[in-house]
Design a binder for these strands. Structure first.
Lengths: 143, 143
DNA sequence: AAAGATTGAGGTATCAATCTTT
DNA sequence: AAAGATTGATACCTCAATCTTT
């Protein structure tokens, strides 16, 4: 095992196996698709629990145009609210609501447990650490 | 950085960034979506360059029902051929054609180069190795 | 009845075109 | 003209129902 191809191929496979598991689990237990969970998580981590649509598109896994529709769905469910940006009338904020924060907090423990079981379960602490650092480097490099 | 969550979240982000890049590059240069490339790669690696639909569904990143449609598309493009399984009339083989093999071989160098640049580029050989081994362990564990 | 495979219906995501504000 | 954002059209993917063979 030496070429980056092997690592990348394994990443594709792990994603293909685990993402659907997490998605189904989040829907079943909390009515949250993984795409919603992802957006809520990014908003929760942002200063003021808010991000412009563009910033959200860059932070989340969803594409820029997908984010528009996800935020509309989340707003319809009361988990997010859209707010004007007083500094620039072109841009819009997506803001996490109290309800959204509550739903997210309910979902996080189960999500972490599933990840720990399915992903972390067979790896040493050191391995987990190296993987996290390495993938963070890949991200930092491109964008 | 210690929890498996950080590693998993980074994996999601890397996938979200790199998969579209590779997909666009494969389409542009070779007319092959990443999903096609994935199926062709699995068939090329299989004994006799053939797999039953179920085996292909397990090997590839596509779901079982998606594989049916992908193989139909690939057969329409002449890159794959469907063959009866003489041992069991329920099952069908997807077989890589000479054309499919040629197209795959043309695409592989560019694919490897893009992965090397975008993924392996910023990592040491040791990091790449640990990531590949760790992700392989995760896969072996679940399925 | 279970296993291999396909398919109709519907959900999910992307692209390119568009609208508005800077 | 460029940046922020949305949207119509379309491609992509999954679920559950179905068909056939074991």
């Amino acid at each position: 095992v030496e070429s980056p191809i092997d690592a990348w191929t394994a990443l594709l496979r792990v994603h293909a196996v685990l993402a659907p598991i997490l998605d189904r689990e989040l829907r079943r237990a909390h009515g949250l698709p993984l795409s919603w969970f992802d957006v809520l998580t990014e908003l929760d981590a942002a200063p003021g629990r808010r991000l412009t649509m563009t910033a959200l598109g860059e932070a989340a896994t969803a594409s820029r145009s997908r984010v528009s529709r996800l935020v509309d769905e989340l707003a319809g469910a009361g988990l997010v609210r859209k707010e004007a940006n007083p500094a620039d009338a072109r841009s819009a904020y997506a803001v996490l609501t109290a309800d959204g924060r509550r739903r997210l907090r309910q979902a996080v423990p189960g999500y972490r447990a599933t990840v720990a079981r399915e992903f972390g379960g067979r790896l040493s602490a050191r391995e987990v650490d190296v993987v996290a650092r390495a993938l963070a480097k890949v991200l930092a490099a491109d964008r």
